[in-house]
Structure formats: structure tokens, C-alpha cells
């Protein structure tokens, strides 16, 4: 029993994030009154986590794969898939006559766009050999540009028919459907990372690319997998956004690239690759959402909010330089590298 307890508290980052969540929640409750903790508000917060959380999972997978891996095209692809589905599907299936079929086709189209976008990224990075930063910067502009061109820069109204409405507005066992979906996806990918052979290979590749190559890890296939999954997750985020806001626009969530990276860095994922935990990512996303909702309650301007997110990102980058072992002596020694990571 004692061993189990010790094991449960052995991850410094996890303890820290649990602490942050409790602290932020407590501060929010004190600052904004008990209203903050009522079920309705908690549900509304939970329904806002999935979009950012899904994008952050994509960024995390890319980062874990190492060698400067990152996916900056997430929100652009999410918007593009929602825009394409929003423009195309009402012409194929009338939402009033066959709402469920409409929702199915909507999701299928959006997921296809996400899959294609993810495949484009993964082919460029894994096979052509582009640097992930350059590739995803380029595709970010490409996806955004396509969404602008398709809509002439205006928004697309989306009919939340069928299960899209369920996904956007309804609860299951008092939990918003969108959050339940996010939880399932996070659990599945977390399990994949931890228990499947490919998940283990992913961490090996991120820790030491050359050693992994000699150990027979198929680099190209792994990278293809990572960026394709990231693309599909982006389109799921696009579907959730479309369901929740009943619209799609090319510039939705302009600071999401920053926030997704912030979530990932706060979760303790190493930017140089090889380490990251799903549970930490989920906790990091919830902590940020609570903070964001507190800002909402306190009526703090969007501009200051961006400033705060930037400062937080720098703060957590700084905190990862401080050795947490000083505070949690029972934490296992992680294999830290002596050399500086590349810029």
C-alpha cells in the first residue's frame, strides 16, 4: 500500500499540476464568489477545454517525437475542416430533413480534410525532409489562406443538427458531451503512448533519434503517424468548435497556437523531445481553462489576457530549468542531458 502511494506521488510534474489546479480553483472561488463552483459554470468550463486540449495533444505528440518537432498548423486546419464541411455538406444533405445523416456527413467531410492536411504535413516532414517548424508554418498559412479564399474572409453559419447539437450543448451524466469525447480521445492516445509498441518507439525516437534508428525504429512511419494523428485531432477540434459556436471562420482562435504550446510546456513535455504525459496535459489544460474563466468573471480584457499567457509560457519555461528534485526528493532521477538543446 505504501509503495502504491509512493508511486502515485512520484511524478513531480503531476503533483505540481494537481497543486496548481487546486490553487487556481481556490483563488477563483475566493475572487469571484461561490458562483464559480456551481455545476453550470463547471460544465461550461469543461465544454471549452476540448478544442484547445485536442490541439495541444497534437503539439505534444509532435514535440515528443523530437528533432525540433512541433505542429503549428493545428488551429488553421481545424478552421479549414469546419469551413469546408460547413460549405459543402448543406448542399449534399438537408439538415432539416435528415439531421443525423447531415451530422455524420459533416463529421466525415471534416475528418477527411483533417486527414488530408495531416497527411500533407507528414509527407513533407517524414518523406521530403522539411523541418517541422518550417513545414507547419507554411501549411498554417496555406490552410488559413484556403479558408479565407473559400469564404472570401467571412464566417460560415453551421446548422447544429443531429448529434452535432448534442455534442455542442448537451450533457451525459452531467458532463458535457464534448468533454467526454475529449476524455475518451485523451485516454486512448495516452494508452497508445504508454502501452503500445509504437508509443514506446515514439519516446525512444524523441530521446535519441540516432540510437532509435540503429534499434530499428522506423523513423518515417513514426513521423507519418504523429503528424497524421495531429491533423485528424485538429479536425475533431474543428468539429467541436463548429458544434459549440454554430459557425466556422478562418481566424477563429487566433491565439490558440500560443495557448496550445503553453498547455504542452506547462504539462512538462520536453521541447527537445522524448518526454510527456497525457495526464499532465489534461491537468494543464484544465488549470488554464479555470484561469481563463476566472479572467472572464473578473472582466479582464483580452489584451491583458494575451500578455498573461505569454508571461505564463516564459514562467513555465523558466520553471522547467529549475530542478524539481530539490522539492520532491523521492522523485526518480530523470535522465537529463548535459548538452544544450538546439535552438
Amino acid at each position: 500500500m505504501e509503495v502504491l502511494v509512493k508511486r502515485a506521488f512520484s511524478d513531480g510534474q503531476l503533483n505540481f499540476l494537481v497543486g496548481v489546479n487546486i490553487l487556481v480553483l481556490a483563488c477563483a472561488a475566493v475572487l469571484t464568489g461561490a458562483d464559480f463552483l456551481d455545476p453550470y459554470n463547471l460544465q461550461s468550463m469543461a465544454s471549452q477545454i476540448p478544442e484547445l486540449g485536442l490541439l495541444a495533444i497534437g503539439v505534444m505528440l509532435a514535440m515528443i517525437s523530437g528533432n525540433g518537432g512541433i505542429d503549428l498548423s493545428g488551429i488553421a486546419l481545424a478552421n479549414l475542416s469546419a469551413v469546408v464541411a460547413g460549405l459543402l455538406v448543406p448542399g449534399l444533405v438537408a439538415p432539416d430533413e435528415a439531421p443525423q445523416l447531415y451530422a455524420v456527413v459533416f463529421c466525415a467531410v471534416a475528418l477527411t480534410v483533417g486527414l488530408l492536411g495531416g497527411l500533407l504535413n507528414s509527407v513533407l516532414i517524414a518523406i521530403v525532409g522539411l523541418t517541422p517548424i518550417l513545414c507547419t508554418l507554411g501549411t498554417q498559412l496555406l490552410f488559413t489562406g484556403m479558408a479565407v479564399a473559400l469564404t472570401n474572409g467571412s464566417g460560415v453559419r453551421i446548422d447544429g443538427a443531429g448529434f452535432l447539437e448534442t455534442l455542442g450543448y448537451e450533457n451525459i451524466l452531467n458532463v458535457p458531451w464534448s468533454f467526454a469525447l475529449f476524455a475518451v480521445i485523451a485516454l486512448a492516445i495516452g494508452a497508445w503512448m504508454r502501452f503500445s509498441p509504437n508509443g514506446v518507439r515514439l519516446f525512444l525516437m524523441g530521446t535519441n533519434a540516432r540510437a532509435a534508428q540503429y534499434a530499428g525504429v522506423p523513423r518515417i512511419r513514426m513521423l507519418m503517424m504523429v503528424y497524421t494523428i495531429s491533423g485528424v485531432l485538429a479536425s475533431v477540434a474543428g468539429i467541436v468548435i463548429a458544434a459549440r459556436t454554430s459557425s466556422a471562420k478562418w481566424d477563429y482562435g487566433s491565439s490558440y497556437v500560443l495557448i496550445a504550446i503553453l498547455i504542452v510546456v506547462m504539462a512538462g513535455v520536453r521541447p527537445e523531445g522524448g518526454y510527456g504525459r497525457m495526464i499532465c496535459l489534461v491537468l494543464s489544460a484544465t488549470a488554464l481553462q479555470i484561469l481563463s474563466s476566472t479572467f472572464n468573471f473578473l472582466d479582464i480584457s483580452n489584451f491583458f489576457r494575451d500578455c498573461a499567457w505569454g508571461l505564463l509560457l516564459l514562467l513555465f519555461l523558466a520553471s522547467s530549468r529549475i530542478d524539481l528534485r530539490m522539492f520532491w526528493s523521492q522523485a526518480p532521477h530523470k535522465g537529463g542531458t548535459a548538452t544544450r538543446p538546439p535552438l
Partner: peptide, 17 residues
Amino acid sequence: SAPSLIVTIGTQYVFRG
């Protein structure tokens, strides 16, 4: 000693904010 892309994304929002 973090990737400069991530650091400057942070400072970008700090400056503009």
C-alpha cells in the same frame, strides 16, 4: 535554453498584450 520559437511566441504576446 528553450527553443527560440517557443520563447519568442511567448514574448510576442507579452509585447503586444
